[in-house]
Nucleic acid binder design. Structure first.
Lengths: 215, 215
DNA sequence: GTTTTTATACCCCTTTTGGGGTATATAGGG
DNA sequence: CCCTATATACCCCAAAAGGGGTATAAAAAC
């Protein structure tokens, strides 16, 4: 049901600082019938400026020093165009925090340059299909990360009674002011409850909250 | 902690076309210590214009010919301020559709003028307490209503294929621009599809659409 | 061979939503 | 007794959603 995405090309944009890689990537993707190269930029500033006019499905994002710049670029672009998938393409895999920050910023894939072009192409397809391709060492880091923290959950008393009431009314499609009227509180208080709900469930809107709560 | 709103009087507004009733109602409610008459209007236009400045708890709504006007007035006011409770106060109880339309528009009480002032006062209190007061004949109509239709629904080809795709993405909590990106169309076109979906399903928002479609 | 439906794109506008604060009062746990 | 969680209320602000148009082209229906 998720449409005929398979019939169309994968729209790819590339941010690559290294001129050699830049040329190599261009020759790979500009000629392939499965991809359409909608952008090829050498720096993040140009990328930020151009990307909204190119609307790629995937952005292959080279991250070099300064690392912060690439991460910030992903975060910025992800905020504007949440639909775009970012595949980090870098040499750096030693610094755990860098890797985590990339994912926090919105990257959904993390590939090392040494992995080679075949895996790169495979990863882009995988990413476009909804997957999260990453190099083995990166995957290991992610797994280990969850060992660092006690893996909280519980979930039973995640939401308070009042918050559950609010969420139940939200799930019926009621507007904030209707929820407020129903509970006999002001709309601002209703908003406050909703903000807490979203924060606790780590979601950004009503639909996601309801889905998460129902699941 | 429960909102310092209704410890005191019931704030009542009245829309009554008939001058005689208007006077009678005023004398009843303007003197009663339990009620405070925040508005007394002879026509719906004035009511619509004034009501947001008077913030009543309850609106006693006279419905006369043309019936459509009174119904529309309730719908309009309920949309603006869902917290207000509407008590229909009319002579008409023969036309079933009229009664149902009043409830659909947002009325939560339906009283006939012939029921008399004691029941009127009792009904307003009942409404304010969260109840749904109505004349016996009206209650009967409501009950019978559910026997009228086999409670089925065609539902087969109500939405087009594309519209179903859009709705599926909406049900995941995706923003318009994400849906657009996913389907490879513009956000404006996405909005157009969504408008059609809401119109066909007779709903006003994403949550209601998803609920209706899933049911 | 018109007419209708579907899908697309873009315009206008208002309302709703979501996220960031601050502040008060109260109930409970350390 | 302090401190946190809960529930309430209010502020500001930007983004998203929703509702009203118009218009074009292709496909389906009549």
């Amino acid at each position: 049901m998720v449409a005929e995405r398979n019939e169309t090309k994968i729209l790819l944009a590339i941010v690559e600082n290294d001129p050699l890689y830049k040329q190599a990537l261009e020759s790979i993707f500009s000629l392939s019938p499965e991809f359409e190269l909608t952008g090829l930029w050498g720096d993040t500033e140009t990328a930020v400026r151009e990307i909204s006019r190119r609307y790629p499905h995937i952005v292959l994002m080279d991250i070099q020093l300064p690392v912060i710049e690439g991460i910030a670029c992903i975060r910025k672009l992800k905020k504007v165009n949440p639909a775009i998938q970012f595949l980090v393409f870098t040499d750096y895999d030693q610094d755990d925090e860098l890797v985590f920050d990339a994912f926090k910023a919105g990257a959904t894939g993390y590939l090392l340059k040494k992995d080679g072009p075949e895996l790169l192409i495979k990863s882009i397809k995988e990413l476009h299909a909804g997957g999260s391709p990453m190099s083995r060492s990166i995957a290991r880091k992610l797994i280990n990360f969850f060992g660092r923290y006690p893996a909280i959950d519980g979930k039973e008393h995640l939401l308070t009674k009042r918050e559950e009431e609010v969420l139940a009314l939200l799930s019926e499609g009621k507007m904030y002011k209707e929820v407020a009227a129903w509970l006999g509180i002001t709309m601002e208080t209703t908003k406050k409850h909703i903000k807490h709900i979203y924060s606790k469930l780590e979601v950004q809107n009503r639909m996601e909250a309801v889905n998460k709560w129902r699941s």
